[in-house]
């Protein structure tokens, strides 16, 4: 039943070559799996990062100043300052180590920007330790929750966007 229909004319020439190669193939596959495993569990997670966290950026010292980087982390609760007149947005980004970088953003923030949200900003760290951001992105977590009793999502937006100091 499983005999190949439409048998190619070159199968006979092909079969002995593959028989002879067999131990080589086993070795090759072992190396292949090893390379894949190393790719996965080796220390490669450090270089394919989309953004740096505050402690990583600060650890770079001078080499991290005034070069284009992406910085990501959580907006520190209560740190958002919004000046309506000059439309100037400032906030602090923090990470699990508690390091903080102050960010000044000039781009239009996405509608989900709020306290304690994950964010990624693109820009440069100035020598004044203020991070000048040219674009602001939200990093959403993998949590999706319905609003609690009495909360309306639409209303939530309004309360979220009530920025202290505005």
């Amino acid at each position: 039943m499983n005999t190949p229909v439409n048998t190619p004319a070159n199968t006979p020439a092909n079969t002995p070559a593959r028989r002879r190669v067999k131990p080589g193939i086993v070795a090759a596959i072992v190396v292949l799996v090893g390379a894949f495993g190393w790719l996965i569990w080796g220390g490669l997670d450090s270089n394919v990062v989309y953004f740096l966290e505050p402690h990583e950026l600060l650890a770079k010292g001078v080499s991290g100043v005034d070069v284009p980087v992406r910085l990501g982390g959580q907006v520190k609760p209560g740190s958002v300052k919004w000046d309506e007149v000059s439309s100037d947005l400032q906030f602090e980004i923090t990470d699990t180590t508690g390091m903080i970088v102050r960010v000044r953003s000039t781009g239009v923030p996405p509608q989900m920007f709020r306290d304690a949200m994950g964010v990624v900003v693109e820009g440069r760290l100035g020598s004044d330790t203020l991070f000048h951001s040219t674009s602001l992105m939200i990093k959403h977590s993998n949590e999706y929750r319905a609003p609690k009793e009495g909360e309306q999502p639409k209303e939530m937006y309004k309360s979220l966007m009530k920025v202290p100091g505005a």
Binding site: W82, S87, Q111, Y157, L160, M161, A166
Partner: peptide
């Protein structure tokens, strides 16, 4: 600019 202000007051642009 007005768009941005509107939006920051809590009304999504789109």
């Amino acid at each position: 600019m007005s768009c941005k202000r509107l939006f920051l007051e809590g009304h999504p642009v789109v």
